[in-house]
Design a protein around this nucleic acid. Structure first.
Lengths: 146, 146
DNA sequence: CCCACTTGTTGGCGACACCAACGATCGACT
DNA sequence: AGTCGATCGTTGGTGTCGCCAACAAGTGGG
């Protein structure tokens, strides 16, 4: 635990810095999701379903930035827990139409809260104005690397 | 390739945003390192050696934030390429004293350049002032989560 | 009717972070 | 001197994440 205290302090190049913060961010979010027995793929898919509505697994993957093969496993787990439903598309029998359930929507809300907590922990040392500025810049970066 | 174009746009919570940028940052850096047949562990260890001088593998891991078991594999690979040397500590025969070689130092410089390129690609849409501000805030975050 | 394509699925790979356990060694204490 | 606890290097395993190859089933266009 304390082994991550002192990375080389001289090598503070910006991109390495970003990677270090990235590790912390990923860690915080993953830990939060784990406490809800979920992983990031679950959130991605639920959020995508919530935003775009029912979709085939392939569309789901494209919209959520998840590989088709990973969609399979995640949808399996979500369906097992009753958070989504999988039904063959009668109009195209190759497709599985995935739909979010009420329980799934509720779980998504819970994950959103977990995410908010992780965010607060991550951004703790920043003022509200700084957080806003940080988010603004990160949004530009994320959009640029679309 | 274009599958990563459209993640759910509504779910732009800050911590999720940070994670998305984190993914891009990790990707850019890893790709750069891969072009030099290296991985982030290699850079971490070389940078730590360069900063603190020769050290045992355990110290190396503690200072670089790398698990002892992962240090073993990374040092194996670095030693194979002649970037570090491993010698038993005569004063404590449990320890392997790892030393960076001239070739290792040169390789580290090369990786630094690769890192700079990745950084430029990542921060492309930001002005110099914005980059500075971003780095300032990220430094605070990284230090806070020491 | 055939061909190209998509879809879901299986299985695999590599990077990263981590953990458990082991033999060897060391240090301290008795 | 001898025992005990801690540390060191090492092996091997776990889980997440992102990705890729291949396949059968199904679709749609020519």
């Amino acid at each position: 635990m304390e082994s991550r205290g002192a990375p080389a302090r001289l090598r503070r190049t910006p991109s390495w810095l970003i990677n270090e913060v990235a590790v912390h961010a990923t860690r915080l979010v993953s830990e939060g999701f784990a406490s809800a027995e979920s992983r990031r793929y679950h959130y991605k898919l639920l959020a995508t379903l919530d935003e775009f509505g029912p979709a085939s697994q392939a569309d789901l993957g494209r919209r959520g930035g998840v590989d088709r093969s990973d969609v399979v496993a995640a949808v399996n787990e979500l369906a097992e827990r009753g958070f989504v439903e999988r039904a063959v598309d009668p109009a195209d029998r190759r497709r599985n139409i995935v739909t979010i359930t009420a329980a799934g929507a509720e779980h998504l809300r819970h994950l959103d809260e977990v995410l908010a907590v992780a965010q607060d922990a991550l951004l703790a040392p920043l003022s509200a104005a700084e957080r806003q500025e940080l988010v603004r810049m990160l949004s530009r970066l994320a959009e640029h690397h679309s």
